[in-house]
Structures are given as structure tokens and as C-alpha cells.
């Protein structure tokens, strides 16, 4: 699943460890999510969305929905 986590994290100047600490997960977990090797659980996805003050679908994209308008 594609996501904008790396960009969002970089915008705030956070390391993977910083984000991991804020989420209560390891740095490896953050890396695995960023590289698309691991899809987070729904509770963790909500946690991420709250942390970045975005909706889940503004962070993650499963490639199934056409976001175009018209």
C-alpha cells in the first residue's frame, strides 16, 4: 500500500525513531510502513492520522480509488 508517511515525517523534521516513539512502535515498524513492506493495523493507522491531523486516506492509498474529479 502506498503512503505519504516519509514526506509527512520530513515536513516535520522527524526521524523514524522520533515518529516511532510518538506512535509507540519501533523504528523498524516505521521503516516497514514507509517502504510499503508492512500495512499498519487500523488502530495504528488512526493514530498516525491523528498525529498528522489528516484523514487515513490522505496518508494511505491502496490504489483502488480514483481520486480524480471529472
Amino acid at each position: 500500500m502506498n503512503n505519504r508517511l516519509r514526506v509527512l515525517r520530513a515536513e516535520r523534521g522527524w526521524s523514524q525513531a522520533e515518529l516511532g516513539g510518538r506512535l509507540g512502535v519501533s523504528r523498524q515498524a516505521v521503516n516497514a510502513i514507509e517502504t510499503g513492506k508492512y500495512d499498519p493495523s487500523l488502530p495504528l493507522a488512526f493514530k498516525l492520522a491523528r498525529l498528522f491531523e489528516l484523514r487515513i486516506e490522505e496518508i494511505f492509498d491502496d490504489g483502488e480509488v480514483d481520486h480524480g474529479h471529472g
Binding site: L19, G24, R27
Partner: peptide, 21 residues
């Protein structure tokens, strides 16, 4: 499920270090 979005930068790394320990 609480996320501390108001914490200072570096606080996350400290929390992670404690978690790793």
C-alpha cells in the same frame, strides 16, 4: 488511544529509547 502531538521534538526518540531498553 492517545497520541501526544504536542510533545517536543526529541521526546519521541526518548520514549523509543525507553521502549528499546
Amino acid at each position: 488511544m492517545m497520541v501526544k502531538s504536542t510533545m517536543d521534538t526529541g521526546e519521541g526518540e526518548r520514549l523509543l529509547a525507553a521502549r528499546r531498553r
